[in-house]
Simulated scan of single mutants.
Amino acid sequence: MYQFVFSLETTLHGCRDYGFHGLTALELTGTDRVGLLSEVFAVLADLQCNVVESKVWTHNGRIASLIYVKDCNSGSPIEDSQKIDRIKARLRNVLKGANDIRSAKMTVSMAVTHTERRLHQMMFADRDYERKPILKCSADSPLVTVYDWEERAYSAVNVQCKDRTKLLFDIVCTLTDMQYVVFHATINTEGDRAYLEFYIRHMDGTPISSEPERQRVIQCLRAAVERRASEGVRLELCTTDRQGLLADVTRTFRENALNVTRAEISTTSDMTQNIFYVTDAIGNPADPKIIEAVRQKIGMSDLKVKELPLIYHEKAEREEQAVGVGGAVFSLGSLVRRNLYNLGLIKEQC
């Protein structure tokens, strides 16, 4: 049995990350699978919904997405109840896949929300922190410990992980959503590592009081750090916007067995700038040859590789040593460098 949650709301005011003026917001959570995003965007294109902005996170086999749309014909937010019902029914079928639905929710409201804060809340409500990952996990998992500071009646939370943008935001949002108050904190970075310690209490002034609660805090903070982790090859699509563009691009990913682990969709005037992080179907780094084939299909000048996982560069260094075969000597490292050069990630082949 699998669970998904679908909700829809119309935003009238706001700015980037706080909702978008004159757009309808779709909230989706469910079981992640290869090609799911392609099916979602295909449904929206078929229903004449233009995707203006969107953010997609995946974690532990779950997906959460906020998609801001408008009607393709009128350019207005979607408020017609019959069309809303059609969107709900079609996306429900996509999200449930071949599995039964345990429960579903849909709301229509005028609320304005911070996009990334809302994504954390959606995944927290979906209890992604309790689920076992379906895709292969990164070896660089955050280390979280919780201990008592009895003299001051605080609970101390220590987080050690790779440093990145918005790390503090993600942790504090989660502590706040769990109804904890942060009284003091120390934050240090060394190289690419971050060391954060928070002294917290419940809203009623009491510290963490049980081992199950302690373990839940550890699970939730690990999830908060991991949700925004940039797994996979970073692809950037910058091109003229058109009806069905996202459906076409994500269908190409699906046809080449690429899984989208995170996505950011942004449209300004008639131009769209999208970021996709992709892996293979089980979470391993995508084959550079497949990435190259996808770029050729979508457009070499439109879809560019901006970031490769560290494993690609480590492989190039390991294979730098020349290998002799049948009296001929060649460098495997040079072959890897050639792939990196073709993908536009190094200046010259050397």
Results as ranks from 00 to 15, higher is better:
residue 224 A to D: 09
residue 251 R to A: 13
residue 228 R to L: 12
residue 186 T to R: 13
residue 217 V to Q: 07
residue 173 C to Q: 10
residue 223 A to Q: 04
residue 180 Y to H: 05
residue 199 Y to I: 04
residue 201 R to H: 01
residue 246 L to K: 03
residue 217 V to P: 05
residue 244 G to H: 02
residue 229 A to V: 11
residue 168 L to P: 02
residue 224 A to Q: 03
residue 190 E to N: 15
residue 209 S to E: 10
residue 173 C to M: 12
residue 245 L to M: 09
residue 236 E to I: 13
residue 169 F to I: 11
residue 253 F to E: 08
residue 185 A to S: 15
residue 211 E to Q: 14
residue 203 M to H: 12
residue 242 R to M: 11
residue 208 I to K: 00
residue 246 L to I: 08
residue 242 R to F: 10
residue 172 V to Q: 09
residue 206 T to C: 11
residue 206 T to S: 13
residue 214 R to T: 08
residue 240 T to A: 13
residue 180 Y to M: 06
residue 201 R to W: 01
residue 231 E to F: 14
residue 175 L to D: 00
residue 202 H to S: 03
residue 217 V to L: 07
residue 249 V to C: 05
residue 214 R to S: 03
residue 179 Q to S: 14
residue 190 E to C: 14
residue 242 R to K: 06
residue 247 A to H: 02
residue 174 T to W: 04
residue 225 V to T: 05
residue 170 D to A: 08
residue 199 Y to V: 02
residue 249 V to S: 00
residue 173 C to I: 10
residue 191 G to I: 07
residue 205 G to L: 01
residue 253 F to L: 10
residue 195 Y to L: 12
residue 250 T to H: 01
residue 221 L to M: 04
residue 206 T to D: 06
residue 237 L to M: 09
residue 242 R to A: 09
residue 190 E to G: 15
residue 222 R to K: 12
residue 248 D to A: 14
residue 250 T to A: 03
residue 252 T to S: 13
residue 249 V to H: 00
residue 214 R to C: 08
residue 184 H to Q: 14
residue 184 H to W: 12
residue 246 L to M: 10
residue 206 T to G: 08
residue 174 T to P: 05
residue 247 A to C: 05
residue 249 V to R: 00
residue 242 R to C: 11
residue 216 R to P: 00
residue 177 D to K: 10
residue 252 T to M: 09
residue 195 Y to P: 01
residue 188 N to Q: 12
residue 216 R to V: 05
residue 224 A to V: 06
residue 229 A to Y: 09
residue 247 A to K: 02
residue 201 R to M: 08
residue 202 H to W: 07
residue 188 N to H: 14
residue 191 G to T: 08
residue 241 D to N: 15
residue 176 T to V: 14
residue 246 L to D: 05
residue 179 Q to E: 15
residue 197 E to G: 06
residue 221 L to N: 02
residue 182 V to D: 01
residue 187 I to Q: 07
residue 224 A to H: 00
residue 202 H to C: 07
